[in-house]
Design a protein around this nucleic acid. Structure first.
Lengths: 216, 216
DNA sequence: TCAGTTACGTACCGTACGGTACGGTTCTGT
DNA sequence: ACAGAACCGTACCGTACGGTACGTAACTGA
């Protein structure tokens, strides 16, 4: 008789439930939080409201499940970095910048962030923490691994990898994320992603690159 | 018979209306968007709902007026920069970093940003644009003036002031704004503002400072 | 074949909120 | 002093939504 979501944080959902969550995400993306009504989700997913409440507890549980489900989809492989040279490091940093910008500008990501921000003023509401932990943390790890590997290869120099990574993040994203969350036209911003990534990598290497990395 | 808000964007409000908007902001800060009900504002401000609708049209108009009013309060004097030296530039940049972090971490700022982000998925809803234009743009100008003055003094070197400013912004704020919007504990983050500002200014000067500025 | 379970669809309830209407009160200009 | 406007307080309306209850269809296992 497991009528409550169990193990709080690592639960997996049944295929049917995944399908429902998928539809809920689609609804959220298309119409914002306002459109995410229990009746609306039930109708869109061809399930009953009673099932929703049995599976997810209440509306908050549904939103948590949506974040959890979405996070489980976006597993970022943290590929091992061997044979790092200046060229491959620059390429890896550039790839990371592009991936980061793509993720942050994605429909679902923006919708979930807006949802979590909207709930953040309420009580507990660990949506924001969940989003950071399950979404961003994974991407962060990948970049941190890259930076540490680059330091070991003598291409980068820094004291704290976390500090260096934050600088990299700031150089890439700047105020773009908030602007997108505020509704700025994404198609316009997306055109600049290329030059944005290039400039960020260039500046980052000037800040943290060793002479070995900067040698032309 | 001016039953509509006129001149769209530069309107001023009567003292009574300002007091009501002040109370509305207090309500928004304390309880988030959910707490910002027309009845609640009327009760808190000791005015009638009918007056609210007469003055601001509807709930959206009230929210626009709140942003407009708040923006009108935070006029940042863009002091002229004469006699810029390496020390005064570093001081001015550090002051700017602190001011920026203080503004972004302010209760009212966070509440209004959350409000605008929540509305951004809806139709037109120019709240986000208003917030950027009336709030951030003012701060941006101040920093741009500083950067241009520093370039003229031979302390900084860059092609586009806007680009350099974006880098400065990214170095200072990084992902802090979004984390605060997501509900991360501000008192914890605030302790790092000092080192954050110092590191940002240091990195910025390494990126854009001339030899004259870097000379110890 | 026949319980027992799961889940669908619908109807229902209570509440909260946006917006309107109206009588009474204070302010203002003459 | 008086008329008219502005405004307050409250009551009211319609709707939308979260959550629950119930009847019924489909599936499952012995």
């Amino acid at each position: 008789m497991l009528d409550k979501i169990e193990s709080k944080g690592t639960e997996k959902f049944s295929p049917r439930q995944n399908a429902v969550l998928e539809e809920a995400l689609r609804l959220l993306v298309s119409g914002g939080e306002k459109a995410l009504t229990t009746a609306g989700v039930a109708r869109a997913a061809n399930c009953s409201k009673e099932s929703l409440y049995k599976w997810f507890g209440d509306r908050d549980g549904l939103m948590e499940a949506m974040i959890s489900y979405q996070a489980s989809k976006v597993r970022t492989g943290e590929g091992a970095h061997t044979h790092l040279t200046r060229e491959t490091l620059e390429k890896a940093l550039s790839d990371f910048a592009h991936d980061l910008l793509d993720v942050l500008s994605g429909d679902v990501s923006l919708a979930l962030n807006r949802l979590a921000i909207g709930q953040s003023s309420r009580d507990g509401s660990a949506l924001g923490a969940m989003l950071l932990e399950r979404g961003r943390r994974q991407i962060d790890k990948r970049a941190m691994n890259l930076l540490v590997a680059a330091k070991r290869a003598g291409l980068l120099d820094f004291d704290e990898a976390a500090d260096a990574y934050e600088v990299l993040y700031g150089l890439i994203v700047r105020d773009l994320h908030v602007r997108m969350l505020l509704g700025e036209d994404i198609s316009v911003l997306r055109k600049e992603f290329g030059s944005r990534a290039d400039k960020a990598v260039d500046a980052f290497l000037r800040l943290f690159g060793t002479r070995k990395a900067l040698a032309d």
